[in-house]
C-alpha cells in the first residue's frame, strides 16, 4: 500500500509567458478526501490535467498512484478514476451499456466485468433501470452511476471535478455519503467544488490563488489560521488577493 496517492514538488506549467501553475508542492495521503479549491482561472484545471496524465508539466515533480507524470502518463490514466459533471456518461447508451463500455476502457476482463456490473447495479439500486437510456435517468442517479463507474476498476485515487454542480440539496448530500463510503474503502478522493460548505466535509483542502497553492490544511486549521468562521470566509479572503483577472 502506498502512503501517498499524490506527491508533487514544485510542479509548474507555463503557457508561453503565462505561469498557469506556479511551483505547487503538496501530498495527498492514500484514502484521504482532498478538496482542491480555487477561483475560476486560478490554475485548478491545468493542475488536474497534469495529475491525470493529460498534460506534461513544464518543470517540477509529480507522482500519482506511485507513477511519474512525465514517463508514466499512460499508466496513470489506467490507474485513476475520473468523473466530472460536464462529461461523464453517454446519454444515448443504457446504464448497463455505459458500465460495460467504461469497464472495457479500463481493461476489465469480460467475465469479471459482468459480475462487477451486476454488483454495481445492485449497490446503486439501478437493477430495474439497467435497460434505460442514461438521458432518461434523474440527475441524481446519473451522478451516482457515473461515480460508481469511475471506481469500477478500483483505482487508488478518483478525481471528481465539480461533481455536485446544480444538484438538489438532498441528492448533493447523498453524493457526499457515497464519497465517504468510497474513502472508507481506501480509495483516495480528489474533489473540486464551488460549494464552500462541501469543503468542510473534506479531510484536508487546498486553495489555489494565481497558480500558487496559498493554503493547505484541514478545514479547522485553515479557519484558525485565517481567524475565520467558515471556509467560505477563508476562500474569499485569499481569492480577493488574486492579481489575475481570472474570475
Amino acid at each position: 500500500m502506498l502512503d501517498f496517492a499524490i506527491q508533487t514538488k514544485g510542479l509548474t506549467r507555463m503557457f508561453g509567458d503565462f505561469t498557469a501553475v506556479d511551483h505547487i508542492t503538496f501530498n495527498v495521503k492514500q484514502g484521504e478526501i482532498f478538496g482542491f479549491l480555487g477561483a475560476n482561472g486560478a490554475g485548478k484545471t491545468t493542475a488536474m490535467k497534469m495529475l491525470t496524465g493529460l498534460l506534461t508539466p513544464t518543470s517540477g515533480e509529480a507522482r500519482v498512484s506511485g507513477r511519474d507524470v512525465y514517463t508514466e502518463a499512460e499508466s496513470i490514466k489506467k490507474n485513476i478514476g475520473y468523473m466530472s459533471q460536464k462529461f461523464s456518461l453517454y446519454d444515448d447508451l443504457t446504464a448497463e451499456e455505459n458500465i460495460r463500455f467504461y469497464g472495457g476502457v479500463y481493461g476489465i476482463q469480460p467475465h469479471e466485468l459482468s459480475q462487477k456490473a451486476e454488483e454495481l447495479l445492485e449497490r446503486t439500486g439501478l437493477i430495474e433501470e439497467r435497460k434505460k437510456l442514461v438521458k432518461d435517468l434523474p440527475l441524481g442517479w446519473k451522478q451516482k452511476l457515473a461515480f460508481s463507474i469511475a471506481i469500477l476498476h478500483h483505482p487508488n485515487i478518483v478525481f471528481l471535478d465539480e461533481p455536485t454542480g446544480g444538484v438538489d440539496p438532498v441528492t448533493r448530500r447523498q453524493f457526499w455519503e457515497q464519497i465517504y463510503e468510497v474513502s472508507e474503502q481506501g480509495i483516495t478522493v480528489f474533489v473540486t467544488t464551488h460549494y464552500m460548505d462541501e469543503a468542510e466535509y473534506c479531510d484536508r483542502i487546498s486553495i489555489m490563488v494565481d497558480g500558487r497553492m496559498d493554503a493547505l490544511g484541514t478545514p479547522a486549521e485553515l479557519k484558525q489560521e485565517h481567524s475565520a468562521e467558515t471556509i467560505e470566509e477563508v476562500f474569499i479572503k485569499l481569492a480577493r488577493s488574486a492579481k489575475r483577472g481570472g474570475g
Binding site: M196, F235, I236, G247
Partner: peptide, 9 residues
C-alpha cells in the same frame, strides 16, 4: 452557476 464564491459575490 459554476462561478467561484468571489465572482458570485
Amino acid at each position: 452557476t459554476g462561478v467561484d464564491a468571489v465572482s458570485r459575490k
